[in-house]
Design a protein around this nucleic acid. Sequence first.
DNA 1: TACACTTCCATCTCATCCGG
DNA 2: CCGGATGAGATGGAAGTGTA
Length: 799
Amino acid sequence: MRILIVTSCTGKKTFSPENALTTEDFDKGQAHVTRQEKALKEYITPAYSMYTGQQHLRLMRGLTYFQQQHPQSDVQLDLQIVSAGYGLLSAEQEIAPYESTFQGLKRKEILRRGQQLSIPEDLHTQLSTPYSFAIILLGDDYLKSCQIDDETIFAGPTLFFVGAASARKLPNHPNVHHFVTSNAEAKTYNCGLVGLKGELAGRLFTHLVEHIKDFQLTQSTDLAAIFSATPKTSELDIEPFDFTPITPPKKKSAKKATKKVPTDKTSTKKTPKKKKSPKASTPKKTSKETPKKRIKRVNPEVDKIIELPKGWMQKPHRDRLIYFIPDWDDQVDPDYDFEHDIHSGGTGDWSNQVYAHQMYPEPNYDGILISRVVAEKSKRKKERINQMGVHRYLRVPREFPVMGDCGAFDYIKEELPPFTTEELLDYYTRLDFDYGVSIDHLIVAQTEEKKRFRYELTIQNAAEFISEHKKQKLPWTPIGAVQGWDPASYRDAAKQYVDMGYDYIALGGLVRTTTKGVLEILSEVRTVVPDDVKVHLFGVARPQALTRFSDDGANSVDSASVLRKAWLGSNLNYLTQEGWFSAIRVPQVTSFRAKRLVKDGVISLDKLQTLERGCLRGLRDYAASNDDTPSEALLDLLVEYDTLIAGERAKTRQKIERTLIHRPWQSCPCAICKDAGIEVAIFRGNNRNRRRGFHNTYVFHQIMQQVLNGELEEIPFLPPPPPPKEDTANTSENTKKAEKKKTKKVSKRATQKATKSTSKKKTKKDKDLPSKPKKKKTKKDDAVELVQMALFTPPQDTD
DNA sequence: TACACTTCCATCTCATCCGG
DNA sequence: CCGGATGAGATGGAAGTGTA
């Protein structure tokens, strides 16, 4: 019977000579260490008796006691010590005194040193060699050095003594158990954290003296009861240090122990060469046989594939323009508690949150675009998406269009894109994309001198991409990414793509181009691209030019602009058929800004909380009432809070008032507004802000369909294309006309609403709205200005 | 003998960076 | 603006150890 115990070295040692080995000595390589050890000859001691820190002493008391009570036992106590100098040590290995610890080192440094000492490799070998049970006593930093993760094999039940934070990071493996050691436990067991792990392990072995036959480590083992019922290790009747491992593995000399020390200085830079011992290779093999993936428990209510309504794929606007939304983990908690601001799943994660398309009877976009860089950003997401495929991951049915690209913005500064065509083709196929975009390299102002190189590279990639795609007869549609810097360059490249055999090309790098510029490029490209070849525009779903895009030959677009506007910018956050509205700021007192205010002594936390609660209550009461204007008191409160947090901003009061008067959440037919009501209009936290973004996308998509289907003449909340120059926007003839029309529309609607209400005040206000601004500024003029501002400020693409 | 210091680990807070 | 990841620094904990 083998019991594995893994503990850490301690700072306090039996000997602490002046010339004790240091981290620098170990870094200088084995030859140096051996030389130094000669000078320390008189201090060379087996590892188990070298350490005199509390953890070690207490552990050793328990082990010694156990051993003395079972001198002829067939139980093998296999004690391994993680040393920051020597690496993983067997208890009997002879070592010299040293000063080296992982404690307090930076994470990266710990990992590097751990690697260098081959601690992960050696420990994983120990853990994959069968044992009856194992006990691990490692603090945060030592645990880090071991790199225990989901791939680690546990050949038997394994108990970790760890802090709460480390416990959360332990692999979710049936053999892994943990006992949390915190200050509470330190109190309970009369032992500082310094020695707590050792004390508990020591007590466990004391307990085992009587119970070695029937002890089983399972989820239901009541460890706390065992520890409490067992005497302190300091009360055990033993001779300290009288310990030798029973049936130890082959003896190793001190020289052998130093084998793990890097052999020369250069090796410290890289990970040490892997020793090909048969033991060491075991974990890898078994890891493939038993893929124990650690997946956070997924809420089945949330992890559902949506159903597309009948005829969804045949919706008429699709023939003209298809709208893709770029995915960037835009999810919310469907059961979020707005009243108390509590997330139903603790913290948000894919496993307990839903996508926008899961919240509507039908998706609020026609397809999803997902960048490889985004898909593989986090380890867990990469793991999941690779395992599930992209449709399952996004929770859409197989027929829902999903496009993949590289995410060129993320490597814009690199000399070369970080992918190869071969690898990318495999990625699109493996994840089961519908469309895959070839590798492109952005050409923008900052890469001016390299533009020719990037241009040619992008074309070359596209050529390789489609020829390989054809050769391998892959099932998805290849899209050739085109880059350029003017209409002619785009056109010339596009021509080549058509000749290569592409049925679908995508124009990239247009995000910062004006709508007019985009249209020019598009028209020029279409002179060489036949109708049966589709064209996608990356990142430019300009609401004011959708019909033009379609008319001039675009087949699909993508943009997250309206989504992000929900929380970017301070003014136009909430999109309706009548235009943009400001969201009302009521940030959480835990927000960064709020905390800074308290810290700087601007306001007390109490006062801030009172304001926060007052704002929320006031807003909810107003929403529940039939009032058509908010009270002055509520406005005062909201403005005070807004100003505190965001500083003095222009027309804060009017913006808030306008939003409240119009009650956009109430008139919006979308499922999110119906469900969350005024919460959607509050600028506060992910769950409100992202919901508002989803809503914006919904409204945008609705308008887009109406426009494309000819049910709506123009985008009502924006001037018709081509857009006038920003600075002249308010004076151009076109805009003025549009202004009039729009303001009228708003007022008409508002008047209709007002007839239902009883207040005269509102009606009066609305009557004033369409009137022309006079020279002398009045409060009403401000309101008019505001409406205009909201109606005509074109949204900026931010992606 | 009384008291302060040491030991080491976990945890908390605050700040910063990152990318959208 | 948001969340998260990471890092630095302070704090709490209790026994053991050193010191006056």
